[in-house]
């Protein structure tokens, strides 16, 4: 405290002059009143506090508070709006996915139906083809059999002529005589008709 005391004493004259200059006739603040309790300064402090704080309050209530409040509200609105938008988009996306899946299922069903009909059609066509070709084959076979039997009959008919020729040739060679065709044919007929 040895530091403080002389300095404090030093401040007394200034305080005294201030009091004299500030509030003539003031009595409560003799000598060196502790500054915060020096009543001669109260009026000035109150006045200037009223002016500065009053203006500050006006500025706050008229400009700053509405402005910051507006900024915060705008941001809140914007965020809420963005969230709504995001929700809406999500819903849309969900709907699109559902629609897509439904369509996919329908397409699958349709595809299998198409495949089924195609298979059936193909089977029917194959069956028809098979039956026509079978019929064709049967007809061809019948033709072939017919021609075989015709050839056979013809061949069999020729056999008699060949036999007659052969027999007459044999007779001519072996016996040296000749026979009439009628005789040979009768003889063959007799031989084959046994």
């Amino acid at each position: 405290m040895f530091v403080v005391t002389p300095a404090y004493a030093e401040s007394n004259p200034t305080e005294g002059t201030h009091s004299e200059a500030g509030a003539p006739g003031g009595d409560a603040h003799g000598g060196g009143a502790f500054p915060p309790f020096d009543q001669s300064t109260f009026a000035s402090q109150l006045l200037w506090l009223a002016i500065t704080f009053g203006l500050f309050y006006l500025l706050m209530s008229r400009v700053i508070v509405p402005r910051i409040g507006g900024i915060l509200e705008h941001r809140r609105d914007r965020i809420a709006q963005d969230l709504d938008e995001a929700n809406r988009l999500k819903e849309e996306a969900d709907n699109a996915i559902a629609a897509y899946e439904q369509e996919l299922a329908e397409a699958r069903k349709k595809a299998s139906a198409i495949a089924e009909t195609a298979r059936e059609k193909a089977k029917a066509a194959a069956d028809a083809e098979r039956s026509t070709s079978e019929a064709e084959l049967a007809a061809k076979m019948a033709d072939a059999e017919k021609s075989i039997s015709a050839i056979k009959a013809k061949a069999l008919g020729d056999v008699d002529a060949i036999a007659e020729d052969t027999a007459s040739d044999l007779v001519k060679h072996l016996l040296g005589g000749s026979l009439t065709k009628a005789e040979v044919a009768a003889a063959i007929r007799a031989a084959s008709g046994k």
Binding site: H18, A21, T41, S44, Q45, W48
Partner: peptide
Amino acid sequence: FQIKNIVPIEIGGLDLSFTNSS
């Protein structure tokens, strides 16, 4: 904490000076 006058103003015997506090 000393209050010092910067612009002395006195109205009706009241010291309303602009001080360092002001």
